[in-house]
């Protein structure tokens, strides 16, 4: 890993921990980001963390660009030795796979896809070497995912699956992005899954939808009353397949204000995870059974 620093115009410092994605790079980026936040450097106006990088926005009328970059570089050694452990939460997200709404959308934009003859799911299963879409979906939802970034649009989580790299699902993005994606669609692009928090453009392969809103600017959804954005970096997600009846039941419960997401507090320790992936994941998912 070789940390790279660059200016993004005259108001941003871009820090790339690694060119490739890994949880190690995520944790170093997170630690360095936290160190920069704790240093309370005058002129820093916002810090945006990403998967294996982060960006610091600063006011060059308050701090010179060279100085802010030097201050961040000074903190690098601290980040490298800090704990790769996170007090976080695991959340069960219901997903209705192969639903009619994302299916209608992906068929409407077929000419923008690598494989116009099939569905996104057929394509993703085939290029990842699965015999059936069922086997592919099993791999997708049986092991948890880690929220490594929140962004693109309002509250959209990027998720990285907690499995060995050779088991990571990877798919290309659409050749040309769709101009429409149903709100709360679940998709995957590169090695990242996402939940589209709002309706709009998108390039990820689609194969399901959740009935659970994750962004609510009106703050009327019961669990989004305190803050309109649900996800934070470091959250862990366990997908739970649901059928149409269950999807509609949850949707109605959300509307009635009676739906409560299943959430349990957990600790994620990267060294423990690397030493025993299956065991760590089993413990994480076990936490959901206790609630």
């Amino acid at each position: 890993m070789k940390t790279r620093y660059s200016f993004g115009g005259d108001e941003h410092v871009y820090v790339e921990i690694d060119e490739e994605m890994s949880l190690e790079a995520f944790f170093i980026a997170l630690s360095l980001r936290n160190a920069v936040a704790e240093a309370e450097i005058p002129g820093v106006t916002e810090i945006c963390p990403a998967n294996a990088s982060f960006e610091v926005r600063f006011d060059p009328d308050v701090i010179a660009p060279e100085e802010i970059m030097a201050r961040i570089k000074e903190l690098e050694h601290k980040a490298e030795v800090s704990d790769k452990r996170l007090e976080t939460r695991i959340i069960e997200i219901p997903v209705y796979f192969q639903d009619p709404w994302t299916h209608e959308t992906l068929m409407r934009f077929r000419e923008r896809h690598q494989d116009p003859t099939g569905s996104d799911l057929d394509y993703a299963a085939r290029i990842n070497g699965y015999d059936s879409v069922e086997a592919f979906l099993e791999a997708f939802h049986s092991q948890p995912w880690f929220v490594s970034m929140v962004g693109f649009v309002a509250g959209l989580p990027f998720l990285y699956q907690l499995v060995e790299r050779e088991k990571q699902i990877q798919v290309p993005k659409y050749l040309r992005p769709r101009t429409d994606t149903p709100k709360l669609s679940v998709g995957i692009g590169g090695c990242f899954a996402c939940i589209y928090s709002v309706r709009g453009a998108g390039g990820y392969q689609l194969f399901g939808i959740t009935p659970m809103p994750i962004y609510d600017p009106t703050q009327t959804v019961s669990y989004l009353k305190d803050f309109m954005v649900f996800f934070r970096p470091g959250d862990i997600v366990k997908w739970k397949p649901v059928d149409r009846a269950e999807y509609e039941r949850i949707e109605a419960a959300v509307a009635a204000g009676t739906y409560t997401p299943r959430i349990a507090p957990v600790t994620f320790d990267l060294d423990a995870f690397n030493a025993d992936i299956a065991g760590t994941n089993a413990n994480l998912m076990e936490a959901l059974n206790g609630i």
């Binding site: 871009y14 690694d18 060119e19 994605m21 926005r57 962004g151 993005k173 590169g190």
Partner: peptide
Amino acid sequence: PFGAGSDPSNIVDGCYSY
């Protein structure tokens, strides 16, 4: 790089700035 996607214009998703 791993996770970036196959097009040469792709990177591992990072921050964009104004």
